[in-house]
Design a protein around this nucleic acid. Sequence first.
DNA 1: GTTCCCCTACTCGGATACACTTTGTCCGAGTATGATCGG
DNA 2: CCGATCATACTCGGACAAAGTGTATCCGAGTAGGGGAAC
Lengths: 153, 153
Amino acid sequence: MKLSKTATLAALAVAYLSTRRNDGHIQARHVADYLHIPTDSALKVLQALARRGVINSHLGRSGGYYLENEPHNVTLLQIVEAVEGPIEPELPVESDGNGLSNPIDQLRKACNRVAHSMRHELDRTTVAELAEGMNGTPITPILATIEEGGIAH
Amino acid sequence: MKLSKTATLAALAVAYLSTRRNDGHIQARHVADYLHIPTDSALKVLQALARRGVINSHLGRSGGYYLENEPHNVTLLQIVEAVEGPIEPELPVESDGNGLSNPIDQLRKACNRVAHSMRHELDRTTVAELAEGMNGTPITPILATIEEGGIAH
DNA sequence: GTTCCCCTACTCGGATACACTTTGTCCGAGTATGATCGG
DNA sequence: CCGATCATACTCGGACAAAGTGTATCCGAGTAGGGGAAC
């Protein structure tokens, strides 16, 4: 079970946004600083999350990202599927009714069970749990809170 | 949940061997024909299985592979871990105690749960179930009781 | 004071280059069995 | 007839090339808000 780097960053990004729900729009640059990654990389993750409706975005000059949903209603499953696509059973062979079909069907069933249990487990972890205890402390150095009214509205 | 091609072939190979337990040593070439793949590819899968003790091999002129264990005692988990290595939780980041540690620890816990449930599910499917009803000798189910039905949604 | 227009700061989304993992193929080496040949 | 030697058919295991997938970076386009100029 390897959680991809993208999925990991996505989860941490959403956890971060959940601690700053009262700070208006958070720019991708600040999320990137928090995660210690280039802005472009953060952008890609945030865009994927926003496209799937896990987080929200605001266009324009004083735009940015923010978490509108309640943190305890956003689960790891939503985050992972937003950036990696749906978790669905997949077999690299097709049943070509040549005597192999039966064991392949059995394999497919097993695959279904595994995928289902993965989704179930991921759906049990919420962003509220991830962010528990980080209480919005602006991490490490960076210029996070400096800029003037960038966090308007 | 993507079952790798190697793992799929391994499962089908073991299922095949389980139907020929009374035929002595089965050569890699025959397994390859059954799976419609090159002998070399079958060899690699069979070797990995034999190294881990899932199946057995016999060296020399009239050598080959065979399944000594009872089919209902060999599970998908053993097969998958034999060819893909152990299924263990893995995060592409390390906790470097800088404020990120808490959400990362929470992620790690979630990852542990997912990995555990994957192993549990894979361990519930036996080779006897896979080979059930294959061409040739049917496998006598012993503690089968497969629960079928709408598991995926 | 009001309106219009431009400038800036940000997101959006595709395209591309890179790295890593998986997969497929090949080759040399080792081992057991059967056949052959000499005693 | 018996035993030692050789040839054969298979597995073993590493090495390597090819393909696929995930990751990092870049660039142009679009959008909203603020500031300045004209009226």
